[in-house]
Design a protein around this nucleic acid. Structure first.
Lengths: 213, 213
DNA sequence: CTTGTAGGATAGGAGTACTATCCAATGGTT
DNA sequence: AACCATTGGATAGTACTCCTATCCTACAAG
């Protein structure tokens, strides 16, 4: 498979593929001669990963680069898979900061029997809980526990699916897209709940059809 | 309050305030004479709304413009408050599309006794459920119901807080920030859950501390 | 009457993600 | 063996967003 074919198969323009090659997002193909290179299915998969992270999850190229760099170093061992998931999480969460602790966060971890170890994700949760309190966004412990329980079951399912020996690219994509989709689902659910409560409270009829500009 | 003071109070540079004025995000101040204008608390609040939508929720200026345009037309009546909430939701959800229906979505609405009316939010939920199915992201009905119940209680609290006659700017900010914060909370919870499951499964110790590049 | 700051307008800059163009080498076709 | 479209590599340019810097004039306080 050469560039033009790869472009057609992936629905990414040849110019963009070249750009990704230059940016290091895509590994160079096997060189056939000084002016030709062959690409394989792994390149197609990588392009799918890039497109998914870019357009579904909404990551920037710099963040995607971080993920693919780990992918390119990984060999599929358990350790590296774990590290990969960690990097994906850090990247999707877009967070790095000092270690933070919250009683609520620790309570959730203890309650669900999650391993009590520091991680980027745990820190992100604690930092976010702090931020929510600071911003004055209400959150009762029951809701937090509800989220945690839901997350617990989803995470199990997610890893089950991705556990059937997919490529690391697929694992990465599934993990990132899954987290993002669920998070967005909650956003939409909240909007609908808010709309529903608002209709009850303010008693509108069909005022929520949107902007009819 | 003149420009310099407003800038100091809001922590937004004078140049940016001028830019927002030009963009119509901020109403012009009361003109004292051809080269001077006075700004009031409402301008400060508007700036806080802009900053929150911009940097917390991550909206673009075009989207923020849509929200403030509605705010500037609204008078605080129930109808307009409802419309405002609808616009905020449409904007935060970044969605417009054809009407979609899903059995799961309808089931949730029926189950929680939400008003069975079409809305942007409801459509967004249905569209998203469809997208999740298409993307192969697993979601069992129990989890969906869990989210819905959580959203239901949060929405109630949210409107209670915002119900104590705040300004419309505050209402808008609270609604948008609240939705976004909860959605991000779930994202972080999912990451932590996934990390925890992965540690159990792949048996790492402290491999999730992140990218130690 | 001077001087400094406000406010307005215009242009410029930084970041991101491509996209278009050019070019020499090549390989398939004739 | 000659030809010509294509490939891949490199460079520069584009489109968009969100500001930021500069310049200018008027006015208000001293």
């Amino acid at each position: 498979m050469q560039l033009a074919e790869l472009s057609k198969a992936s629905e990414v323009s040849a110019a963009s593929i070249k750009f990704y090659l230059r940016s290091g997002l895509l590994q160079p193909g096997a060189r056939l001669n000084p002016t030709r290179a062959a690409y394989g299915p792994e390149h197609l998969q990588r392009l799918r990963l890039i497109q998914g992270l870019r357009h579904v999850v909404g990551l920037g190229l710099r963040e995607i680069t971080i993920v693919v760099d780990v992918l390119d170093k990984a060999d599929g061992s358990a350790e590296q898979t774990l590290e990969l998931l960690g990097v994906i999480q850090s990247t999707v969460l877009k967070l790095q900061g000092p270690e933070v602790h919250t009683v609520e966060g620790d309570a959730v971890v203890a309650e669900l029997g999650w391993p009590d170890e520091p991680s980027e994700a745990r820190n992100a949760l604690n930092a976010h809980l702090t931020a929510m309190t600071t911003a004055g966004v209400s959150l009762d412990p029951g809701t937090l526990r509800t989220y945690a329980a839901a997350a617990d079951s989803i995470a199990g399912l997610n890893l089950d699916i991705t556990g059937s020996k997919p490529t690391l690219d697929e694992l990465a994509l599934t993990a990132a897209v899954g987290m993002h989709m669920h998070s967005q689902l909650v956003l939409k659910m909240l909007a609908l709940a808010q709309a529903s409560h608002a209709i009850r409270r303010y008693g509108g009829r069909d005022l929520l059809r949107g902007t009819e500009e």
